[in-house]
Design a protein around this nucleic acid. Structure first.
Lengths: 131, 131
DNA sequence: TATATATGACTACAGATGTAGTCTTGTGTC
DNA sequence: GACACAAGACTACATCTGTAGTCATATATA
């Protein structure tokens, strides 16, 4: 066992990915506008570099349309979230899911509605495991 | 809002931190042995560099005893876990705790005992919030 | 047509991180 | 005392990441 040395999506690149998923095949200009209006005061040059590197990392692909490139994610958002979750779980909680869950339950705010939804999910999971 | 640019503990450094917490004021040799027996086939030189950098980052401190340095964490383990959890939550789930919790509940294995413990915690949390 | 701006390709630099090497010093063993 | 090894300080290199700049090209506007 050792650290997974596969090149990761950096924190800043995650913000770009989130915009790519949200906007559906955006142009670089659209990504830049969205990030800037989300409070990331990054220069367009910086954001363009991040986009280019994500393409190079094979995380997004682009297709030319009307002289502009439109970008899209190569993998499903869920896939990337799962992988990031696994990595985090392993790094901080040595893979112990219930420790992670307890940690967040005990250290963050949850509305009653959220608590009930979680309870329902846990009920469902327990029922499925009984079969 | 923008990315928190504070220097982070890297993935590899987290593994060192975990050993420092577990072994209670270990020497570098003890850290090296422990990591190697945990499956990290890192050279002693690599591990020593990581230790030195963590000291430089003010994450651990050292004290000389009998000619050897003994290392200890400057912050509580819980503090670092909380900070890492917050950062992950913001990066992947835009701060939405219940989304994170649902994600892990629905995508990982949990024993019935773990499910019950979680439900108890959620019950407690709901009760506390009613006051 | 001239000008302004956006876009993409290519480049650059600083700092962080992973992976060590070299050298000096101290300790333990023979 | 000689030798081996561990430890710590200091150094080095490659790669990744954040933050751009430069240049050429295309498009829009006056």
């Amino acid at each position: 066992m050792s650290l997974d040395k596969k090149i990761q999506i950096s924190d800043a690149e995650w913000e770009v990915m989130k915009v790519v998923w949200e906007l559906k095949r955006p142009t670089s200009g659209e990504i830049i506008s969205c990030l800037n209006s989300n409070g990331f005061d990054w220069s367009p040059k910086t954001i363009r570099t991040m986009i280019t590197r994500l393409v190079k990392k094979n995380e997004i692909k682009c297709k030319e349309e009307d002289g502009l490139l439109r970008y899209s994610s190569i993998k499903e958002k869920d896939r990337l979230i799962k992988d990031a979750g696994k990595r985090f779980l392993k790094k901080i909680f040595d893979g112990g899911t219930s420790n992670l869950l307890l940690h967040f339950v005990n250290n963050t705010d949850l509305s009653n509605a959220e608590i009930e939804e979680l309870q329902k999910s846990l009920d469902q999971k327990r029922d499925e495991q009984k079969k």
